[in-house]
Design a protein around this nucleic acid. Sequence first.
DNA 1: TCAACCAGTTTACTTTTAGTAACCACATAT
DNA 2: ATATGTGGTTACTAAAAGTAAACTGGTTGA
Lengths: 120, 120
Amino acid sequence: MGTSLGITTDEQGRKHVSEPCLEPCPIERGMRVLGGKWKGSILWHLKDGPVRFNDLARQLGGASKKMVVQRLREMEDAGLVKREMVSDRPVAVTYEITEFGKTALSFLEELKNWSETHQI
Amino acid sequence: MGTSLGITTDEQGRKHVSEPCLEPCPIERGMRVLGGKWKGSILWHLKDGPVRFNDLARQLGGASKKMVVQRLREMEDAGLVKREMVSDRPVAVTYEITEFGKTALSFLEELKNWSETHQI
DNA sequence: TCAACCAGTTTACTTTTAGTAACCACATAT
DNA sequence: ATATGTGGTTACTAAAAGTAAACTGGTTGA
């Protein structure tokens, strides 16, 4: 009988969804890459230049090293972040935002502004 | 000796963080309200007008009623969404985006575009 | 030599989230 | 009477996410 947002009702009155929002919908997909705890903050901290691992971990006061490493690996895999071995013996590593990572910054900035302007 | 992003090194070479990004930083706070699984999608589905509970649950193909209710309650509490009892006996309920909820749409749109333009 | 740094890894948990499947009470249509 | 609809709730399980703290194996500086 009627339709509303992809839901159709047939002649017998049974309801069917024509375009259910299955998992790989763009908003959920985006949230998976940027939404994990600390991911946004990590990217944000890298926006002004490469940062060394322990410095990053310290900045993210609340996060354990394990979390920071884990998130960094995920973000490396997603291509948001690049790991660079700066020196071998004294081991020194920096993490740097990639060009692709930078494309997410405007979005994070909007989120940041949104949280700041509305008291959340 | 040097400082970098709020990390200072004292005369003895010990490192200290001056402004660690503790949990309630704007990006993390924003992610807490908008980042849960399905929350973004729910808000997005409500953008064109009120939607009834079961319709919404159907649209979110992968989500169980329990999840949808849970997320809706959280979003009600956050003031993003309003529950409206349309009719009592036949019980009918709609969920509607609030003015505050609408302020998050531009952000979701950017996330959506970002996910769509970069193959994620 | 000792303490502190580097960049992690590992362990041993606890907490949170996600999810299934069945069930409720009531209403409407066949 | 039976199936289907409404808007949920309950009970339970599985998986993910997160924690603190110890530990590696090296380096550096006092």
